[in-house]
Nucleic acid binder design. Structure first.
Lengths: 159, 159
DNA sequence: TATTGTTATACTCTATAACTATA
DNA sequence: TATAGTTATAGAGTATAACAATA
């Protein structure tokens, strides 16, 4: 095969878009694709703060519920309490969250934002709102509300 | 504190639902919550087949594009080609996917489903469709189409 | 030079099981 | 007995950087 033909074949192969079967019709697949894209935009948005969507959620939850313990945080996030340990370890090492002694129960910690954590969160909040506006730029406000409503109703069978 | 009061406090703490701040208004958060719930239902649905949504997607892609190589698969899935290696390693170890010599390019493998892989996929497909119907049970067919449309339009700014 | 597959390495996220201190 | 936090362990999934074989 002559060189020019090889290259043409390679480029053709690269351009020939693969078929996706039933995937584009599946809610689960589109959910996953959307989440990957949103995650990338989030990371780019808060660049310099080095924070993940999950960590942002933890900061919001602790700010909204000061004194929350790790088990309660796990329930709120939908993860096991053993998973919470490492999450809080990372945030504590960065001095964004503190484990205080819980006044009523010596088994547990009362989680709080440090002043630095509050400051970072104050900076993050408008950035995250800008990120939200950007990912949803192609959707009207009504469509954005519809999307959130539909997402909340997934996996919630009629009662 | 008397025992009965302790218990009452604990139960009250457990019942007092934490506040979620701005999270419920964020598309990213609802996307994540929905994906976790969908993933759990998927795992329960294909129980016994021990397959993840990502692995199901790989099987569908290989079936729809027999002879695809690993790099092309990575592009189609949106992951690095080094990530594809371990994914295919696992599916090959389970004899669901085979690395065949690529006819035109000795650097690459032509990926194919084994007969066992085709068989499993034939079993999985109706299970996955049932799973899709279940997670979307609270949505009308029109709402399901709307949801998929809105998800596809996320992170796709107006051109 | 560019591409394919691979390895080494590292990090996040996740879970289960078992342990300890405390309730 | 039950709960809170922890540790050990394991596995999936992800990425970057470098390498050999091939194009």
């Amino acid at each position: 095969m002559p060189k020019s033909e090889e290259k043409a074949t390679r480029i053709a192969n690269r351009r020939r878009k693969p078929a996706f079967g039933i995937l584009p019709d599946l809610i689960g697949y589109n959910l996953r694709q959307a989440q990957v894209a949103v995650f990338l935009d989030f990371a780019a948005t808060v660049d310099g703060h080095d924070i993940t969507p999950g960590q942002f959620g933890v900061l919001i939850l602790i700010e909204a519920n000061p004194g929350l313990n790790q088990s309660q945080l796990g329930v709120a996030m939908g993860v096991d309490r053993s998973t919470v340990v490492a999450v809080i370890d990372r945030l504590e090492a960065r001095r964004l969250v503190a484990r205080r002694p819980a006044p009523q129960d010596r088994r547990s910690y009362a989680l709080e934002l440090t002043p630095e954590g509050s400051r970072i969160l104050a900076e993050l909040r408008p950035e995250v709102l800008a990120h939200e506006a950007r990912i949803a730029a192609d959707l009207s406000p009504a469509e954005q509300r519809t999307l959130i409503d539909l997402l909340k109703r997934l996996c919630k069978p009629k009662r």
